[in-house]
Amino acid sequence: MSLYIAHANEASHQEFDFGDNVDVGTFEQILDMDEGEEDDGHEFSRSIVFGFLEQAETTFVKMERALKENDLRQLSELGHYLKGSSATLGFTKVKDQCEKIQHWGARKDETGSNPETDDKKNLKLINESLKKVRENVEEVNNLMVKYYKQLEGEE
């Protein structure tokens, strides 16, 4: 079930297994935007990807704080925030967790379609989800470091 990215470079046909962490089609769009970068062919996507990972770390810190403060609303906003960028990059797993956090923070169930007024439960679920999403992000980070290293090695 592993997904492969056939890099835009038709010549190298490099493939990289991101697993189910990354939606290849979405991420490839970003890679496409790398074309023609002057100094480093991947500078754009690299900056986006690692910018996001930094952004995610920062957000997690805020989430931890909000969790301590039982600030569901803040947690929902942070979840939404990270959801958007992760979805745009195709970081599917991260996005899914963030979406759940957004819903729980909004005092709804994980689908967001039903209300869930048990705040303790919501906080607990968020706490669990936060751990998962941090793991996901870490995983993506490792993959991306590897991926870009591989790209550089090619050049």
Binding site: I30, S47, I48, G51, Q55, G84, S85
Partner: peptide
């Protein structure tokens, strides 16, 4: 767009 990632990607697409 408040999210920098989305903003950058969106802007990048728009530039393209």
């Amino acid at each position: 767009e408040d999210d920098p990632t989305c903003r950058q990607i969106g802007a990048k697409f728009l530039y393209s």
